[in-house]
Amino acid sequence: MHEVNATVKVSQSITKKISSAKLNVKWREYKKNKYLFFLLIPVLIWYCIFSYGPLYGIQLAFKDFHVREGIWGSPWIGMANFKFLFTQSPDFLIILKNTVIISFYHIVFGFPAPIVLALLFNEIRSSIFKRIAQTLSYMPHFLSWVVLSGILITILSPSSGVVNDVIKWFGFQPIYFIGDESYFRFTLVVSAIWKEIGWGTIIYLAALASVDQQMYEAAVMDGANRWKQTIHITIPALYPVIAILFILRIGSVLDAGFDQILNLYSPSVYGVSDILDTFVYRSGLQNFQFSLTTAVGLFKNVIALCLVLSTNYIVKRMGQEGIT
């Protein structure tokens, strides 16, 4: 028994020494690169002010907020705001459904689009043509939805738009893409892909640039054509990046594109386009229901956290690297 206790004490002592040695090594590394860590100070200040500072206002979700009384003076009402949203608000469940459907379309059609475009860019052999194509695909990203919405409204106009002129030239009736509920979600998804597809390829092209070219040479020696090289070399090289970006995208499933929808929707398509963010905008900034909209924001963040953690767990179980 004494021998066992002595062995345990020795192992504990060794473990402490190893931990202390690792801590000293880390501290020396931090001290060696201290000037690099000073560069993080502006970023940390930004996060403290704009990301962690507003957490103080989360308590509004559990209060009946009155401007005159302030946050501390407003009475606590517990979960009343959440109960109102899920049981008494006639539009909340419809708005939640619209948000999930639009986000689902963005994930199914919008998430793979940059991957496909990056694979196509990777197959272009002319460097000049590749640069021109990449530049043209990036350009819409730098335009705000205020500008792009005006362009879309003009070219999709049922009376004078270029798209409907082509449709009428083929003998069909013009389509009101932005004012018809049957086509509005389609217009949202396609225009969002067009705006962001080029910008989304940057990280995938960076990942493809790190692929060892000797693997392609070996595949050619084995008789693999371009398609087989893409399937067995190029796409597997993108798996880690795809996994991380997919986790982050799932976490924003309740963010269906506020800027885009706010600039494109109208009362005629509220039934299919009204989402949580537009609901918060109208209820909070226009109707001054700050407690109710804070409850909606807290609900979104909790769902996003749960989705990120669960998706990260599933991805890691599938053998890929997650975000933690």
Rank of each mutant, 00 (worst) to 15 (best):
T230N: 14
F170V: 15
T201R: 03
T99F: 02
G161D: 00
C48W: 11
R226W: 08
G161L: 01
F111W: 10
F299N: 09
I261M: 04
H232W: 13
L40N: 09
V296T: 09
F111P: 07
S144I: 01
L264N: 02
Q59F: 10
R125T: 13
D64I: 03
K83N: 14
Y281D: 00
V189T: 13
N122A: 06
L307D: 09
A295R: 07
E29A: 06
L248K: 06
F290P: 01
V296K: 04
R125G: 03
G322S: 05
E217M: 05
K130T: 00
I233F: 02
Q213P: 13
A209D: 08
F170W: 10
F290G: 05
I275W: 02
V253A: 11
H141V: 01
V100S: 04
V269A: 00
A192M: 08
G297N: 11
K31V: 12
I244A: 14
I231E: 06
I261E: 01
L148N: 12
S51V: 14
Q260V: 03
G73Q: 02
F86R: 10
N225W: 09
P140W: 03
F65V: 00
P158E: 00
S19Q: 15
K26G: 10
G257H: 05
N225Q: 09
K130W: 04
F186W: 08
Y265I: 05
S291I: 07
G200H: 02
I124N: 02
K32A: 11
A295Y: 06
P240F: 01
T87A: 10
K195F: 03
T201C: 15
